[in-house]
């Protein structure tokens, strides 16, 4: 049985799709058979981030309507054998996603995969509910910015009430990923610090992704930024995956940096 992970945030443009793409790629690199699903009906973008936009033949709505089975709609990643993408549809019909349809797809995929990563659309409309409803684990992507933190808090409320696990009285694991973080600006008090964000939201921190020009370069090229060996954002995503899987993280850059490193804000526990 696959673990279902929703990547969500409430607010748009904070890095859900970037995170979904890199996280799924990282899980596949670690040897887990992974599928990443775009739930943003009408505004699909995960295919661009993953660089497979021209290979989309069938999408999730085609599967729900029965035009294709789920395996026909899966797009295999060019580089990684055990990574697959299920694209969103470009239809304007917002009701195209049905709960039964989504359940059937996830049930089918559950038997074949280790992890199913659901890339949620922004907002709190149907696509966002569908992406989170069957999740076992939620990754809440937040920018250290006032509106993003508030929206994330709203999403945490929905995760605690509008998901299958919540309805059954089961726990849904929630993790925080802070993106677009500028450490220097946080230190000078210009930007909310990770500690601030974590304290406000009250969920364990999984990763801090620094603000990085590599993210734009990666999306331009259609390659998840986690594959960028040189960038700090790529390293941060690799560490996110390692932490999630409970593995040892890649060492930090230099001795000096390690000596100067301030208090570790991560909580010591295994997440997966």
């Amino acid at each position: 049985m696959a673990k279902i992970i929703v990547v969500t945030s409430g607010k748009g443009g904070v890095g859900k799709t970037t995170t979904s793409g890199s996280f799924a790629t990282g899980l596949a690199m670690a040897g887990y058979k992974t599928v990443v699903i775009d739930f943003d009906i009408g505004l699909r973008n995960l295919d661009l981030i993953m660089g497979c936009e021209r290979r989309v033949v069938y999408d999730i709505v085609n599967v729900i309507h029965g035009d294709a089975n789920v395996n026909q709609a899966l797009i295999r990643d060019k580089k990684l054998q055990n990574l697959y993408i299920l694209a969103a549809s470009q239809t304007r019909d917002k009701e195209a996603l049905t709960q039964e349809g989504v359940k059937k797809i996830l049930d089918d995929l559950s038997t074949q995969f280790d992890y199913i990563v659901c890339d949620s659309p922004a907002g709190i409309e149907k696509g966002a509910y569908m992406a989170m409803y069957y999740a076992d684990i939620a990754i809440v992507v937040t920018n250290p910015e006032i509106s993003s933190v508030r929206d994330s808090d709203r999403i945490l409320g929905l995760l605690a009430s509008k998901t299958q696990r919540a309805e059954r009285g089961e726990e849904i694991k929630e993790f925080l990923v802070v993106t677009r973080y500028a450490k220097k600006r946080a230190e000078t008090g210009e930007m909310l610090s990770v500690e601030n964000v974590q304290e406000l939201l009250g969920i364990p921190l999984l990763a801090i992704i620094p603000e990085s020009s590599a993210v734009l370069t990666a999306s331009n090229a259609g390659q998840p930024v986690i594959l960028d060996q040189k960038s700090d954002a790529g390293l941060a995503y690799r560490n996110m995956v390692a932490r999630f899987l409970g593995k040892k993280e890649a060492p930090k850059k230099g001795l000096l940096q390690r000596l100067l490193r301030t208090k570790d804000v991560y909580q010591k526990e295994t997440f997966a």
């Binding site: 734009l216 331009n220 090229a221 259609g222």
Partner: peptide, 9 residues
Amino acid sequence: SSAQTAKNR
């Protein structure tokens, strides 16, 4: 390099 790739895509 990368912006041109994005534009072509």
